[in-house]
């Protein structure tokens, strides 16, 4: 569904992504893991169209979308939940949700009900300003807002950032549900490699702008080097 070929991105004067290629099949959960500064976020931002690629191509359904503006990509069904949640703090929860669907002209009530079903907490707080929500609730709102554009592929940039372990579990559970119930393809980047690898069907490991390893989620979970580098477990 999504194919990246030899993507190079410059970000803030340095070459953040140094020519990576990978694929995201339809209805799968794919994760990119790696340390800080590996170029994960830059990759997602480039796919979303927020940053221009220096070289390489992005194909969505075999169509080259490398030079499309961000809003056209949203229309095609690519949505990014940016890092650090980035909800609109001085707008109400409901307004935030509505903004997510701003490119759509059809009736939204059904979709709003659907995301409320996914996150009942948001329905309780629909009148509250988003800035007053807890971190976990803001992350839920960011996901709900992303879902409102009825994406075919949803990209999540570190959804576990700064959240309590129990909340992280909840969020990952929901991500899996979205994938299974709606058939939305998920491209997830995470520093919390353990969680990400557990739900991913396929995973890529990034290091300083390059993909250094790939495999299925369970394969990488077993891999000695990955365990040592990202999961904090010693080699036996």
């Amino acid at each position: 569904m999504l194919r990246i070929e030899n993507l190079k991105v410059n970000y803030g004067g340095i070459e953040a992504v140094k020519g990576i290629s990978f694929e995201v099949p339809e209805r799968s959960i794919v994760t990119l893991i790696g340390a800080n500064g590996a170029g994960k976020s830059s990759t997602l931002r480039t796919i979303a169209g927020l940053v221009k690629a220096r070289e390489g191509h992005i194909y969505f359904d075999d169509e080259d979308i490398s030079s499309m503006p961000a809003r056209k990509r949203v229309e095609k069904g690519i949505t990014l939940c940016p890092e650090g949640r980035r909800v609109f703090p001085d707008m109400t929860v409901l307004e935030n949700i509505r903004i997510g669907a701003y490119l759509r002209k059809d009736d939204l009530t059904k979709d709003i009900q659907a995301v409320y079903k996914l996150f009942p907490r948001l329905e309780e707080r629909h009148w509250q300003l988003a800035g007053t929500l807890s971190g976990g609730e803001q992350q839920m709102l960011a996901v709900a807002r992303g879902l409102m554009s009825s994406p075919r592929i949803m990209m999540l940039d570190e959804p576990s950032l700064g959240l309590a372990p129990i909340v992280v579990q909840e969020i990952f559970g929901t991500i899996r549900r979205i994938n299974q119930e709606r058939g939305t393809t998920i491209l997830l980047i995470e520093q919390n490699a353990n969680m990400a690898l557990k739900i991913a069907s396929h995973a890529y490991v990034m290091e300083t702008g390059r993909i250094v390893m790939s495999g299925s989620g369970s394969e990488l979970l077993e891999n000695e080097e990955i365990r040592a580098a990202y999961l904090g477990k010693r080699k036996h």
Binding site: A70, F88, D90, M91, E95, I99
Partner: peptide, 21 residues
């Protein structure tokens, strides 16, 4: 809905752009 777009840009340009504004 234009007003909502204006406010979204005020609050967070990057998120607004990611929403397709």
């Amino acid at each position: 809905s234009y007003g909502r777009m204006f406010k979204a840009i005020r609050e967070d340009e990057i998120a607004a752009e990611a929403m397709g504004i």
